[in-house]
Design a protein around this nucleic acid. Structure first.
Lengths: 340, 340
DNA sequence: TTGTAAGCGTTATCAC
DNA sequence: GTGATAACGCTTACAA
């Protein structure tokens, strides 16, 4: 006589589909259906099942589900930092789209490191994600190979490339736009400070350089770039350093708002009037920039929307909607405030 | 004649253990062993296996692994916000401990909502996490029940409770300490502004009230609490509002540094001298507070260390180290700066 | 509408 | 040190 081994409860007291099925008096697959496609189960049975599920406190086992269906309902998102408002906002947009659709979001924080990125991707790929959201386009060959071999759609965020699915804006144009605006305001000796030096920062710097070179105002000593993490404190230090090596500056374009805030605080401390003696402009329009005194001119970037649309684009690629617009330029907005 | 179905490759071109086994000419379990417990496999075989694994690009399937072993190597972390430096730092500490140990970290952002917390926990529990890290102790009955029923260890972060595993500090004492410090500086009409109103904020407020009441200086109109999300802008607005209803204030204790920064910016704009006319103190010692002009007195909280030690404590509970110190008070530090 | 059978890729258990 | 076998809990494909 064979005893049905399945009737026993597993270790952690977890309730299984079979236990629910047994109690209801139907087969496991029917319970499975009632949970995933309720419309395919008769109303009475469905109600009975719901009761028992509730009563037993049944929770589907994701691992089993993923293994059986070869779908994990998981999307991997790799961002370079969580300490940066920009990516936190982007993540919020991603969540707001993917969670309602039943997707888990696996966040990977690469800390601006290619190695870390490769390591994280390797680890996360073991979870067979349904899709991947990457920040930018600059990745190691290994990462590119992993992405290609993953067999799942990838959407790149923050930048634009006609060849690949992406949602972002032109970082180069941002750098150009702010520099052109400063020139239009009459500033001529426009300095630049940059940190992090990720691909996007470099593109903004390129925009700055292009415009100044076109106007014949570019001077290498009016610019400082360091690889350190961007921060308010660093902004203060870089402003000090740059003003020492180029005291004649009349404006300062900072590659990120936290640098701009730091530069502003440095000026306050030194008694340098902003914008009268030195105009200050930032980038990203972080929340605090609207409240400093003076408030800081910046470029507002649509990061929440980038998160949202990246996720939406990914969903479309997932269901194979070939018509989906695969490259989405969300633009940016120059926000003029008191500091310029 | 039976054809071994296993020899075929699965959909996404994923390499399986069996394929590696076939190529090496051993059984699957041996490959599995070579990967997880190399010392239990002969050196020569192990080397051969490593080669083939590399050659085929084999990656273990986490879902199968979790299903077979009933261990997911996953830890769930629930934090109320990612927009708050505090929790980002905490997460960094958690990662730094858990990643090297091979654990995945599933981040849940509850957005300060009990409902959201319950929903996230429900979803994440389906992944059979090995452990859970929660923020604070105030959870709905449903969440408590889920935690209890999860069968896995739970560590609470940020606060202290002798009854449960936790790593944090006394929020009440923080509120007391700052208020006592302000009194010691000679301030008597000490206002308080609070946002968010989560359990920890309320405890700090309680500390503020206790001390002022003990000194007979407590005045209800010197305090404003709103449930809105904490932000620099809100700090400016609340400072304005409070100064209107209590113009005689000589000091202002803000329940969070972003509020304090906002209050400071408001004063700058209004020409209120800080600290001469109004002293300002914050909480959490966010990075920017050291750089504003004047710099802001605050309380530095050991959030990175809390993340680290919470993760470490969880690991100890996981291996059943009964001797682990289950309640860890990491304290806090008053950081005196120019604003007081 | 419901059920049967087979298998997803791995690991636990117990032999050899 | 290595292997055969049976799970793990669920879903797919096909039947009834």
């Amino acid at each position: 006589m064979k005893i049905p081994a399945r009737a026993k409860r597993s270790a952690a007291g977890k309730v299984t589909l079979n236990e629910v099925a047994e109690k209801v008096g139907v087969s496991a697959i029917t319970i499975s259906r009632a949970l995933r496609t309720p419309e395919k189960v008769s109303a009475t049975l469905r109600q009975r099942i719901e009761e028992v599920v509730e009563e037993l406190g049944y929770r589907p086992n994701q691992a089993a589900r993923a293994l059986a269906s070869a779908r994990s309902n998981t999307v991997v998102v790799l961002v370079p930092s969580l300490a940066n408002e920009v990516f936190v906002d982007t993540l919020a947009g991603i969540y707001d789209v993917l969670h309602p659709q039943g997707y888990q979001v696996l966040i990977g924080n690469t800390r601006y490191s290619s190695e870390e990125e490769a390591k994280l991707l390797r680890a996360y790929l073991a979870h067979n994600p349904d899709g991947i959201l990457m920040t930018g386009f600059e990745h190691t060959a290994e990462v590119e190979a992993q992405l290609a071999g993953s067999g799942c759609p990838v959407v790149h965020m923050m930048e634009l490339d006609p060849q690949r699915p992406c949602v972002g804006f032109s970082q180069l144009d941002c750098g150009r736009a702010m520099t052109e605006y400063l020139l239009a305001q009459g500033y001529r000796r426009i300095g630049f400070i940059a940190a992090q030096l990720d691909a996007r920062t470099l593109k903004r710097r390129e925009g700055y350089r292009q415009v100044l070179q076109e106007q014949g105002c570019y001077r290498a000593e009016q610019e400082i770039s360091v690889a350190d993490a961007s921060s308010v404190g660093l902004g203060a230090r870089l402003a000090q350093q740059l003003l020492q090596q180029a005291p004649q500056l009349d404006a300062l374009f900072c590659c990120n708002d936290d640098l701009a805030q730091g530069a502003l605080f440095f000026c306050q401390r030194q008694g340098i009037a902003v914008p009268e003696q030195l105009a200050i402009a930032g980038f990203n329009d972080l929340a605090a920039s609207a409240w400093t005194v003076p408030s800081i001119t910046s470029i507002a970037t649509p990061r929440y929307e980038i998160g949202k649309q990246s996720a939406q684009l990914l969903l479309q690629l997932l269901v194979g909607q070939g018509e989906a617009q695969r490259v989405r330029d969300l633009g940016f907005e120059l926000v003029v405030r008191e500091s310029t």
